[in-house]
Design a protein around this nucleic acid. Structure first.
Length: 208
DNA sequence: CGTGTTTGACCTGCGC
DNA sequence: GCGCAGGTCAAACACG
């Protein structure tokens, strides 16, 4: 809760690249332990659920068990085989069309921990070292059945106090547990959302 | 035993 | 075509 970094949202420049909606906030993020008191207190499940919704694009990925790649690998792009479900979720290359990805929503927080406890259950499925960054990037997927939401968590190398979380997709289910902390974060995000503050320097760094 | 993490290998896109 | 970087898979492992 020191200072709110930045917040911005880039427009879906549908040009091949992804669209990022970026926002910044600072929080005492606590997550250390994901679901201990995992009670389904679906207190509305509105907050984050609504906030990260990208209106359209992938809202279908819904029940398609997400992964059903027959060959195990290369599922991400070899997807479009007609099974509808996944094909339209990952709008990658569709027979010739230029690839287009789901919009991502990123926001940075000033926190000691990497993972924000946003009320959903996530399963880590990968971690990669990122170029020009001392810290690795972690990849998470929502564990809820049929929910295809992913998120990446990365810490800035030049400011290790800042954690960048990138969400991709929309949750197809209500939040699994309420979380005052995250609600607080969201509140901040909304507030700053109105300011239209754009951190250019940072954006140049993170996404391209 | 169920769930989540770690980690090396693999795949793909992109720039040169 | 090659190499690099990002993204994902899945087996092995750890933990409650």
């Amino acid at each position: 809760m020191e200072n709110y970094s930045n917040l911005f949202s880039t427009q879906p420049s549908s040009s091949t690249s992804n669209s990022y909606h970026f926002m910044g906030t600072s929080a005492a993020a606590s997550s250390h332990d994901r679901h201990h008191h995992g009670q389904p207190c679906n207190s509305g499940g509105s907050l984050s659920h609504g906030l990260f919704s990208n209106s359209k694009q992938q809202q279908d990925g819904g029940d398609e068990g997400a992964r059903s790649s027959p060959h195990g690998r290369g599922e991400s792009s070899a997807g479009p085989d007609g099974t509808g479900g996944e094909a339209d979720v990952v709008v990658e290359k569709k027979k010739g069309e230029k690839k287009e990805r789901r919009p991502r929503y990123a926001f940075q927080t000033r926190s000691q921990v990497d993972i924000l406890d946003d009320g959903y259950r996530w399963r880590k499925y990968g971690q990669k070292a990122v170029k020009n960054n001392n810290f690795p990037r972690s990849y998470y997927r929502c564990t809820h059945q049929g929910c295809n939401v992913k998120k990446q968590v990365q810490r800035l190398s030049r400011d290790e106090g800042v954690v960048v979380t990138t969400y991709e997709g929309t949750h197809t289910h209500p939040i699994e547990k309420s979380n005052d902390n995250f609600e607080h974060i969201l509140t901040q995000m909304q507030v700053y959302s109105g300011l239209n503050n754009v951190p250019t320097a940072f954006s140049n760094h993170m996404f391209q």
